Computed example of a mutant assay.
Amino acid sequence: MSTREPIKIAAVGDLHVKNNDKGAWKACFEEISELADVLLICGDLTDTGDEEEAAILAEELLSLHIPAVGVLGNHDHEKGRQKLIRQTLTTSNFQLLDGESVVIKDTGFAGVKGFGGGFDRYMLSMFGEDAMKAFVQESVNESMLLDRALARLEQEYPEIPKVAILHYSPTAETVQGEPVEIFPFLGSSLLAEPLVRRQVSAVFHGHAHAGQLKGSLKDNLAVYNVALPVLRKHQQEKDFFIVEI
């Protein structure tokens, strides 16, 4: 892949699109089209998990003239209509990933929503009540989905860089600023293991609105919390973050 050109990635999460947001993202998506090669949307595309909100976002995305890839977030699951939201948003130019992967400009993108569970030595364990075991099992399942998606990229495109798209965080670093009491609901270190082992080039997530923009995992693997409130806290003008890989 010595001839590979760098790719400019624009990323944002937690748009929380509402029914009265028609036209709110048009100018932003037009600007992103001029500045980046691909847009990543890291979950919570809708505010209340309603397909009507998804339809508003689908209309806004008509102003985007580059490929877009995303994952759903917890808000998109609120009403149990996540399948309808996926159907509403999936177009030839926007792909929603849930354990799948896609290649754009010689760069592989793998995405899952992720889940909670806590970080490092404060991770919840699969012990005790069935409800607690089910909670931790969901984190395990999401980690396995992510690992399989990254493994497929490794097998089919061994020489290209890999980028992960999540909603929940794989590290406590990017959720710092949130109350420590809710850390177990903001992400899980279980997501970090496949990211490090599969040598991902960068990770993008949202969800932690009061968190930090940048963090890292082992071997200086960059992790970016691109939740919209975080971007607005760290940036004065743009509602998206650009990284070149």
Rank of each mutant, 00 (worst) to 15 (best):
T174K: 04
N93V: 06
S92L: 10
K79A: 13
T3K: 04
G80P: 06
T3Y: 04
C42W: 08
P158Q: 03
D44E: 08
E34P: 00
G118T: 08
A131K: 14
L146Y: 12
K214F: 03
V103F: 11
K8L: 09
V17W: 09
G211H: 14
I41S: 01
R152Y: 15
E51P: 03
K133L: 10
Q137F: 08
L61E: 00
P158N: 06
A192E: 12
G215K: 01
K214M: 11
V12Q: 06
D147W: 01
I182S: 09
L57Y: 05
S63P: 06
H16C: 03
L64G: 00
G118Q: 12
P6Y: 13
E34A: 10
G187W: 07
P184M: 11
P161H: 10
A202C: 09
R81F: 13
I85S: 08
G111I: 04
R232Y: 09
F115S: 05
L146K: 08
V136Y: 05
E142R: 02
L57M: 11
G70T: 05
E30F: 00
P179G: 08
F135V: 00
H16E: 01
D37G: 04
G99M: 02
A164R: 07
S92N: 14
S139I: 03
V38G: 02
K113P: 00
P194K: 02
T90H: 08
G116R: 06
L57K: 10
I66M: 11
S216F: 06
D98Y: 13
H234V: 14
E129H: 06
E53Q: 14
G23H: 04
V12E: 07
G99A: 03
S2W: 12
R197L: 11
S143F: 04
E5T: 13
E156V: 09
D21W: 10
L231S: 09
I56N: 03
Y157P: 00
D14E: 11
P6S: 14
V230S: 05
P170V: 05
F204R: 01
S33E: 03
D47L: 01
I245C: 14
P161S: 08
E159G: 11
G43V: 12
F240Q: 07
G70P: 07
E78L: 14
L84V: 02
L84I: 04
L57E: 10
L213R: 11
Y157G: 00
T46D: 12
I56S: 02
R81E: 15
I41F: 00
S125I: 13
L186F: 02
F127L: 04
I41G: 02
I165Q: 07
Q236T: 15
G117H: 05
S143Y: 00
M123S: 10
K113D: 00
P67N: 08
D219S: 10
Q212H: 10
H167Y: 08
L166D: 01
V203R: 14
C42L: 14
E181H: 00
A131I: 15
R81P: 07
F119Y: 15
V203E: 11
A164E: 08
L97G: 01
E154Q: 15
V69W: 04
